[in-house]
Design a binder for these strands. Sequence first.
DNA 1: GTTATTTCATACTAATTAGTATTTTTTATG
DNA 2: CATAAAAAATACTAATTAGTATGAAATAAC
Lengths: 196, 196
Amino acid sequence: MSKAANTRLTILHKAFELIYTKGYQTTSIDEIIATTQVTKGAFYYHFKTKDEMGVAIIEEILKPTMQEHFIKPTEASQNPIEDFYHMISYLLLEDPFLQVKYGCPVGNLTQEMTPWNTKFSEALAELVDLWKATIINSIEKGKESGLIRKDVVGEQVAFFILSGYWGIRNFGKLQNDNSSYLVYLKELNVYLNGLK
Amino acid sequence: MSKAANTRLTILHKAFELIYTKGYQTTSIDEIIATTQVTKGAFYYHFKTKDEMGVAIIEEILKPTMQEHFIKPTEASQNPIEDFYHMISYLLLEDPFLQVKYGCPVGNLTQEMTPWNTKFSEALAELVDLWKATIINSIEKGKESGLIRKDVVGEQVAFFILSGYWGIRNFGKLQNDNSSYLVYLKELNVYLNGLK
DNA sequence: GTTATTTCATACTAATTAGTATTTTTTATG
DNA sequence: CATAAAAAATACTAATTAGTATGAAATAAC
């Protein structure tokens, strides 16, 4: 990787960390360049504006991460119900990067940047649609293989699962402990088994 | 109401509107006093800091509103399952103040202010706990009256319902139309009927 | 190795921010 | 009505903000 490409990626990664923990609006460019040891000239060489950097974070950091961690595993899944549970459970309790008190990065950005920046909305919507489509697809496969009832509506379930995930992340932030996660997961398990 | 109390309430109401539509951090005091036609001196006479005003909004605007619109109706409920559905459906589709593109005021504030301001967290947590407790209570009553299965766990269901609500609000913001609400509500209906 | 282009460094600006200091007006109390 | 206290108006500050102008160093092309 070229040196220039490296500074660009350094900015994106560090900025993402700051934004995840502090929020987008309250993360200043001065703070980003201070923690990255990159000068302002370098920053504005790589990104025309702060928002352009924000969108780049979504497309170049969040999207690939999601592809790797959610999409691929779900596509390979043979047992949707078990795997949905494990996916959510992993994200809530085990993922080494995500923290209870900081919530879901995608959810945070959606909350904060929509509807004021359409570029953000579009980039985020693309990401979420990808995840949703994968879940729906997985449900259809489950229906074919007989693991899921035929009258289950994939899109409805996808929205239900993802909404629950985003929402419980908010509870986690509010209480700053994972006790709400544990209670939530139990009911998620009940719900998912109802799809059989 | 005294004139002073009136200006205080005017500030709280207008500030709440701005914060709901724009977010807390990006709503400046200058903007608040401009739209309220209240001077800075008056503002800082009533509130020591911006954050103190923020907490006052939660306690003096959001809390009473919630008491009136969610708590009371739920307490009076005879049929929890139907009423849960109607509560969420009303909030998503009919409430005249709430807008799809701006999400849920409580969810927004939780997302934005937690975990950086404990005063906000405490005030918001109190509010949410109240709602949760009401739902749990309603479920227990439903179990007694035979409308809800005995093996249903109230706390789990409460978290599940509220999480879903917060989460789908995020989808609404992202897409800026209520199509996701409609899909979500169908599955909510399925889920709630599974509690019978 | 010279030149051109990419990449980065430094110093700046204009606007906005929350909050303060001080004075003036309004309201309540005797 | 006189006085005290409450309420509000005005003018300010110091810090922070995103972004710019301009030049220097590094890298690539020939």
